[in-house]
Amino acid sequence: MLDPAGEATRAAAARLGVDGVRRLRIGKAIELEVEAADAATARSQIELLSDRLLANPVIEDWTLEMIEASGEQSA
């Protein structure tokens, strides 16, 4: 998939004098805090959101990274 913003940024990196950037893609990171009974439930909820709302699978790939919050600690 053509990423024109990534290509333009890669060209700017070369103008800054940083050669050798072979690939530069720009996407987005979305942070969610989810309350759920367990990690499996949280994962299935976020997978639904990612597939149906947060990303459009026709043009975007997504990966999910889960960080489990400790129940005892407050941020």
Partner: peptide, 17 residues
């Protein structure tokens, strides 16, 4: 219409931005 799935595919950023 494409986001709804009434038409296939998607519209993305213009090639030259």
């Amino acid at each position: 219409l494409t986001e709804m799935g009434l038409l296939p595919g998607a519209l993305t950023r213009n090639a030259r931005l």
